[in-house]
Simulated scan of single mutants.
Amino acid sequence: MKIRLVNEGVFEPIDDIQTALSAPKAGFYWIDADVDDLTELQPLFSLHDLAVEDCLSDEEQRPKIEIYENHYFIVVNSIRFDDEEIFLRALNIFLGRHFIITVTNQKINEIRSLKPMLWEQEVSGPDRFLYLLVDLVVDNYFTVGDRIEAKIEKLEEDILMHTKKSHLSEIIGLRSEILWLKKVLGPQKEVINTLNKKDLRLIDDQLQKYFSDIYENAVKISETFETYRDLMSNLREAYQSSIANRANEIMRVFTAMTTIFMPLTIITGIYGMNFDDMPELHWKYGYISIIGLMISLGIGMFFVFRKKDWI
């Protein structure tokens, strides 16, 4: 657990947690905590039992905002994409009048990226801290969306050039991830809308209007992932069409080969009969002539089929 006094973007480490219980002369306290630290923090800051229980739960938390007497409890999901799977990490936030507590199970990049922004914008209020953090979380969805779009385009190119059976599992897996993420974006969008519209006494009225920009971005993200879902459906159709075309191509080649060998089979069948009176059987050049006829016939049919683009 790290405790910092933040005033005009400048960080001052605090060693004694008791210091953060009362409001500072200027600035606010930022407590960056792990889930295990909540046992100590709950009685000191009067954190609501239900909010702490949600943080300690192993179950996946939906984005939400809970309004309690002396603090707000906000859950938003940070996103990460490693080219194989999409990961959502819950970011639990307790917002008070003079403090903000961030609680995570894993390291979240947005918190690391936030530190220089606090200094650049000379942040001195926990509500401003909340705004910048939520803004970073939402913006990161655009970054992940761009990577997903690039993966879809590459997958489409691979399917059109060299279709493989493994492509189907990639399509199904990525589409499932996008559908799952689409369900999560709905509640998160509503949380941001609440921060934008509801009368919240712990958030400055002027600052609250800025949440409308974040909400618009959240709506764009939701629409973008809806588009990705449609693209994955189109990609699956393209895969099935490519497989069908390849099967048709193979069948066309086999059919052409069968057609070429059919007259050759007839010739060998005729001369394979056990009749004594067949003039060509005793001809000196009969064998060579028949072989030459069969080769000429096969080559001739091959070029005729190539000219008609049958093979």
Rank of each mutant, 00 (worst) to 15 (best):
137 V>Y: 05
93 I>K: 02
94 F>H: 07
81 F>A: 02
13 P>T: 11
181 L>S: 01
2 K>T: 13
196 N>C: 14
269 G>W: 00
278 M>A: 02
66 E>S: 05
141 Y>K: 02
185 L>G: 00
44 L>E: 12
32 D>W: 01
132 L>Y: 13
221 I>L: 03
43 P>H: 08
77 N>Y: 01
302 F>E: 04
259 T>I: 06
113 S>W: 12
228 Y>S: 00
190 E>D: 14
14 I>F: 07
250 I>K: 07
74 I>H: 06
213 D>T: 11
31 I>E: 08
274 N>V: 08
103 V>A: 02
175 R>S: 14
256 A>I: 12
267 I>C: 05
22 S>E: 15
275 F>R: 03
225 F>Y: 09
79 I>T: 00
278 M>P: 09
65 I>T: 06
244 A>Q: 14
84 E>G: 05
152 I>Y: 03
41 L>I: 10
225 F>H: 00
276 D>K: 13
298 G>W: 09
310 W>V: 08
274 N>D: 07
298 G>M: 11
188 Q>F: 02
182 K>P: 00
5 L>V: 13
150 A>E: 15
69 E>P: 05
113 S>K: 14
104 T>P: 00
248 N>K: 10
288 I>T: 12
170 E>F: 08
271 Y>N: 05
87 F>G: 01
108 I>H: 00
120 E>S: 15
168 L>R: 12
139 D>K: 04
123 V>Q: 06
89 R>P: 00
235 L>E: 05
152 I>K: 01
211 F>I: 10
205 D>W: 10
278 M>T: 06
271 Y>P: 06
32 D>R: 04
271 Y>Q: 07
200 L>G: 12
311 I>N: 04
49 D>R: 15
104 T>F: 01
7 N>R: 15
299 I>Q: 05
189 K>N: 14
21 L>R: 12
194 T>L: 11
250 I>S: 06
139 D>G: 10
103 V>Q: 00
205 D>A: 15
202 L>C: 11
208 Q>M: 12
